[in-house]
């Protein structure tokens, strides 16, 4: 009987690196998400009535401000969109350089990114914050009460 030890090359399985690399990347991704994004995510916006009042909502810094576009305040002139945004009986004038597009309209909640300059909020990004209500589009209601969001808000 041949009792010569077998060479290790024939029995050794190659190490499976792919799961280890994938796991390392996942760990790295998790750390990046937690350290870079979760902190800013927790306080995503300040409400209109909190500007200059709440911690982290200083007028001098770049802000994300949430409020409702007041009915009848929306104007589009010279490539700019201006409107009044209100929340809890406080209002600010907002000027956005461009057309927000999408479902942006009066009576809808929005988050505007920008800075307070001379009492006006100059925004370079508008995000529509959709409510958790879903209703059928009704042409008659739209004709009688203006924009879609206002008709939904009025019931």
């Amino acid at each position: 009987m041949d009792l010569t030890p077998r060479t290790s090359e024939t029995s050794r399985k190659p190490r499976r690196w792919l799961p280890i690399v994938l796991l390392s990347l996942v760990g790295l991704g998790g750390i990046v998400i937690v350290t870079q994004f979760l902190t800013s995510a927790i306080d995503y916006y300040c409400n209109v009535d909190e500007i200059g009042v709440r911690s982290g909502c200083k007028e001098s810094t770049r802000l994300r401000v949430q409020g409702t576009v007041e009915q009848g305040s929306l104007q589009k002139t010279g490539g700019k969109t201006s409107f009044v945004m209100s929340f809890n009986n406080k209002s600010i004038n907002v000027v956005y350089a461009g057309d927000p597009g999408g479902v942006f309209q009066e009576c809808i909640s929005v988050v505007a990114h920008g800075r307070m300059i001379d009492g006006t909020f100059e925004s370079n990004r508008i995000e529509v914050k959709h409510s958790n209500e879903y209703a059928e589009k009704n042409a008659d209601r739209l004709n009688s009460s203006g924009s879609a969001a206002c008709s939904q808000a009025q019931g």
Binding site: G30, I33, F37, L38, Y44, G102, V103, E127, K129, H130
Partner: peptide, 22 residues
Amino acid sequence: LTWGEFWQWDPRLTTTAFLFVT
């Protein structure tokens, strides 16, 4: 289509991304 952005690091999206990665 609604917000005007494909992605924002808001609490729901951030935690969902974290869940997916986990």
